Amino acid sequence: MKLLQFSSVLLAASCASATAIERRQSGGGFEDGQPVDGNGKGAPILGGTNHQIDLQNPDNLGRQSTDAGVVPNLKWSFSDSRTRILKGGWVRESVITDLPSSHDIAGAQQHLTKGSIRELHWHRVAEWGYLYSGSILISAVNEDGQFEYAKLEPGDIWYFPKGAGHTVQGLEDDNEFLLIFDDGNFDVVG
């Protein structure tokens, strides 16, 4: 039994070494998720990394010779955001505290179940929305004080100017949409 475990360890170690050798021989490179520039600089990462994220961010693996300086991180995944679970759904936001370089834009991903309503509210900034799943009913009070409403389907977009009171109601079992705001601190009261 111990010999079998020992053999498995050796086999696993030799496979890992073979993979590292193959990466070295192939040259790797930023496009392969490796900090190797093709001019003899760098070396492959052999562990302790998220290879899929490295593939998505080749510029993070090594500054290109054409870079004039440090470019701030301009990516934030909603998967990295804290999800607030609410009666009838959830919401998660990406704001300036998550991505400090994002002064002029913020986003939220929201899910509403059938019949759930995001109550009447308004923002001190403009809101754009994109429905990608389900069906929703939006309503708003326009600049003339008149009530307007529309039923939206996947692929539809909407816009509420700053200060416009509005609601969103889920019409299908599950409804999800993306919200974009023209201020990285859109949910700050003030």
Rank of each mutant, 00 (worst) to 15 (best):
S139E: 11
H121W: 09
W90E: 13
P72M: 09
A150Q: 11
L46H: 11
I117E: 10
R82V: 09
L137R: 06
L112R: 08
Q110G: 01
G145L: 04
S81K: 04
V125I: 09
S77M: 03
I117C: 05
I96A: 08
T97S: 15
L74W: 07
T97C: 11
G48K: 01
Q52I: 06
Q52F: 08
I96P: 00
F78S: 05
I138F: 06
L86Q: 15
K151M: 07
G48T: 04
Y132M: 00
I136F: 00
G69V: 05
L74I: 14
N60V: 10
S94P: 00
W76L: 02
R63E: 15
L74G: 14
R118K: 13
K87G: 09
S77V: 08
L55N: 02
G69D: 09
S79F: 09
Q52A: 11
D104M: 04
F147E: 12
I45K: 10
T66H: 08
E93A: 10
W128L: 13
T83E: 14
A108Q: 03
R92S: 10
P72L: 08
Q110E: 12
L112H: 13
S139C: 12
L131Q: 02
D59L: 05
R118L: 08
S81Y: 06
V91Y: 02
D54L: 04
